[in-house]
């Protein structure tokens, strides 16, 4: 039985590959990505961001927590000195080197983005995958399970994400872990809905009909054919969600939920701290904001290009 279905699987796979011109979906997508200048820009930004985050302790010219007495270095243009030799981007309101804080801060942003996205991705994919699998495998009972899971999901979508975040903060206290979990939790229903929808769309494909006609068991169709083919929109969403996570984390820090200490600066907290100097020293808000925007743009550019590259409708 198994040997036979194995052969059928193999046959289906070979036929599918042949249609695509001898290469797999991902290979084709990667080739298209490499020719897309926007995707490459995004990839370069992400690479730089990751490198800076990894090498931060060696790149930062100063200790991010070390303070200089402002009276000593008071610049001519204002109370808080701007760019000058020794501090390329000037110092912040407490006399700490702005550039060093930005560089070290990249680590926190990367961490928040990756952990929150992983959390949302994993939990969401399990939820959505279960829903889709039950729907595909167990007929009426499966539809019941799917319907219950998805109603839960809809309810989670209706609850304002900020409230979820604040309640996570009341349980765990302020801090980076809170921000990660809060941002991650709000991503779960998005991933769940996406994977379920994608599996549902795939289950109407010709290859599923063909496999069913050939007598392949439902479980095998769902797990070996539908599920892997449904993953591409979810992976695209994961890339985009890295950007959202970094921006949302900044928003939570702005509302006072993020907890970064002096030695571990975070872009969102830096932006929130800069509020009190907004009228006199706008640059203190601009630096971390620009850092957030460029990083988020990198992930968004790559994610959008991936979406286009993986979309069969746009393939020529």
């Amino acid at each position: 039985m198994s040997a036979k279905t194995d052969r059928i699987d193999r046959l289906a796979e070979l036929t599918a590959r042949k249609d695509e011109g001898g290469h797999g979906l991902w290979y084709e997508a990667f080739r298209r990505l490499r020719r897309n200048p926007l995707a490459m820009t995004g990839a370069v930004i992400i690479l730089l961001f990751v490198l800076i985050a990894i090498l931060a302790p060696w790149l930062a010219p100063h200790d991010p927590a070390a303070q200089t007495w402002l009276g000593e270095i008071r610049g001519a243009e204002g109370f808080i000195p701007g760019p000058r030799s020794g501090n390329w981007l000037g110092v912040d309101g407490l006399g700490r080197d702005e550039l060093s804080r930005l560089i070290i801060g990249s680590r926190q942003s990367l961490l928040v983005g990756v952990v929150a996205t992983l959390l949302g991705f994993t939990a969401g994919a399990i939820l959505g995958g279960l829903s889709g699998a039950f729907l595909g495998m167990f007929g009426k009972a499966g539809r019941w399970v799917d319907s219950i899971l998805m109603r839960f999901n809809d309810m989670a979508l209706a609850v304002p994400s900020l409230l979820l975040a604040i309640s996570v903060a009341t349980i765990l206290g302020q801090g980076l872990v809170t921000v990660m979990i809060a941002v991650g939790v709000t991503q779960i229903p998005v991933f769940a809905r996406l994977l379920r929808g994608s599996m549902l769309a795939q289950s109407h494909s010709d290859y599923v009909l063909a496999s069913t006609a050939l007598g392949v068991r439902k479980r095998r169709i769902v797990l070996n054919h539908i599920l892997p083919n449904s993953m591409s929109p979810v992976l695209v969403q994961a890339t985009l969600s890295l950007a959202t996570a970094i921006i949302e984390a900044a928003g939570l820090s702005f509302l006072g939920l993020g907890g970064a200490n002096a030695a571990n600066p975070e872009w969102g907290v830096m932006l929130a701290d800069s509020q009190q100097y907004l009228a006199t020293n706008l640059r203190l808000a601009v630096y971390p904001a620009v850092a957030i925007i460029i990083t988020a743009l990198g992930f968004t550019l790559l994610g959008e290009a991936m979406r286009e590259a993986l979309d069969p409708k746009l393939r020529k």
Binding site: L38, A250, G251, G268, Q275, L278, A289, I293
Partner: peptide
């Protein structure tokens, strides 16, 4: 590119800039 930037700007920062 402009629309992608719109997604990437933290909304409270945009608010601040507009206000300033």
């Amino acid at each position: 590119t402009g629309s992608l930037l719109g997604i990437c700007i933290p909304i409270f920062f945009l608010g601040f800039i507009l206000k300033a």
